[in-house]
Nucleic acid binder design. Sequence first.
DNA 1: TCAGGAATGCTTTTT
DNA 2: GCATTCCTGA
Length: 712
Amino acid sequence: MKSQSSKFKIPLTPSQKQAVFHVEGPLLVIAGPGSGKTAVITYRIASLIDSGISPYNICAITFTNKAAEEMRQRTSSLDTVPGSHISTFHSLCVRILRRYADRAGINPNFSIYDHADQARCIKQAVKDCELDTTNFPPARMLDAISTRLKNNLIDVDAFKAQADDYFTKNLARIYDRYQHILAEHNAQDFDDLLVKTAFLLRDFPDVCSELSNRFKFLLIDEYQDTNYAQYIIAKALVSEHNNICATGDPDQSIYRWRGADIRNILTFEKDWPDATIVKLEENFRSTPNILEVADKLIANNHNRKQKTLIPTRPASEGIVVTIYEDEEGEAQGVVERIKQLTEQGTSLNDIAVFYRVNAQSRALEEAFISNKIMYQVVRGVEFYRRKEIRDLLAYLKVLVNPEDEIALLRIINTPTRGIGKTTIDRVRVYAVGNNISFFEALKKAKDIDTLSKAAQAKLAVFVNMLGQFKKDIEGQVAPLAQRILIESGLEKSLKDEGDKGEDALENINELINAASQYDQLTEEPSLLDYLQQIALFSDADAYDSSSGSVALMTLHAAKGLEFDNVFIVGVEHGLLPHERSNAHEDRQELEEERRLFFVGITRAKSRLHISHAQYRTIRGQQLRTIPSQFLYELGPTVTEQTEEEEDFDDDTDFAEIPEYKFKKGQIVLHKTFGRGIVKNFVDMGENSIVEVKFSSGRTKSLMLKYARLSKI
DNA sequence: TCAGGAATGCTTTTT
DNA sequence: GCATTCCTGA
């Protein structure tokens, strides 16, 4: 290996050097936040190429498309040959599945089904199994199939074999039917992309060895958030050469609910016993004040390996927690502080506001608008969820994959062309009866004698129109989209709708512009490739760091980013930690919420502002909030500020309660809610929280000092 | 067949 | 509170 060349402009620490220049064998980089982890991976790619490895033999896996894009740019600006394979796990799988489609037993033109599409399919599956949607709620069935089964590579046959009670047997039937529906639609859901790739590599040793011979070096970022299927794929891909380099931080694992298995990183040394472990504990991002708070917080997690964050920056401002009256006051308060910052010369690009749930963006947006401050809500997928966007995309999807029934049903009467439910049902009956796809049946509308002559004619016009569009399927995407917009009648129907339609048309134009960008930037643009790419778009991909605006995003989307000034709002019990994480007996989910807060805190470089409101409107009801227990864990460095005077009567003297602790299962009496049973007790002295399930069936979190609970 | 109002349900995070 | 589905009448 050549020595460190001049292209590494930043001086590397000894540990970083070790990670960058380590060549043969498995390597695990355990890296805390702000440790220059991404830089290390980027340099490592450059260094490998520098030492004569072809980019063709390198495969780097990032967590988001955005991260992949940045890494691609950085590696090419480091004078390397472009073309090394850098992408997300899902994009990699799409490419593998397309290339080896015949081996995987699928059609390479497959549609990728997102959550909304999946929801429709699972509903159909439950219905087809003649099961009751109250006992078998589609959403929960889907969650079970995705997280419990697919993410663990349990296929239909395997699950059928182990299903032994009424519920699991029926779940197995639903799973079976669901997979059949997807197959009939020539569609893969997000999980299938991973599952089918994993099975492909498992069942076809030649494919496995071909790929693992090609990818002589595999690098995986954010390894703590990989799931079992991804782990198996990674293992298969390195089976020939063993040159895996995984980087991650167990304290930043925030996707357990999606199947991410923290054990993948914790047991790395068992999987690869000859692994070299490099720890990067120095933090180059945040001030010691911020790191101290982060450290104190995360120390409350029991299920973790002790790790300290070593600051390298000089100490600066302390951390302030501000209490506001309600979410509007909070939003206004954030805006006021941002105004102060900009007056001091801070750029809006260097400011971000994080929250736990997307719904929280509303109050913030209103405050930003009325104060005329530029902001961007980092929510890339939202655009693609709009009705008009989905409509136009559905046309494109059908052209690539006519079996995609979800897309086909979406456009068959959009805009309205007099093809209603009755007609569709009759076509479906014919399709099922003749064992052909819905689209095939449509083409044979003339032969379906249950249909009226009028209906047959309308269907013929529709099918003919699609046939015309299909002639333009090769080459650039944008011109075809434009043509469909006009010739399908979509444009006209939107124009007739007035203001709402105007907005919709603007969105569609934005889509066509984006498509034309794709056409320009891609060497060989193809409709299939375009559709598969946008299906894998994530929220974080939409972040524009040079837009001159404040970034608003969820804590999840903040992963991997950094800002000089960070605001974290709504740090309240029930929101952060989210109430759904308190439901379970085990502490696991609470610990994940704590890690989420940890991720948010450690995004801040210089200033961190944490806040919560005393009242918050949830589902239209204004409720008194309880401060998050995490606030008490931040330690005494934090100073509290109240923007509004406390206006509630504080007549319970805490000292008068001799034994304030409550045990789970204790029966209690509340003066307004009545009898209840204690579900959980969070001991924080006078700030203790009791969760009680009342006889009404509702579970409430109460702050002990105000609740006046008596034991029975 | 379909528009519009009523009823119902859902409501964390996302590739 | 909002979105989707359901239902009714034209």
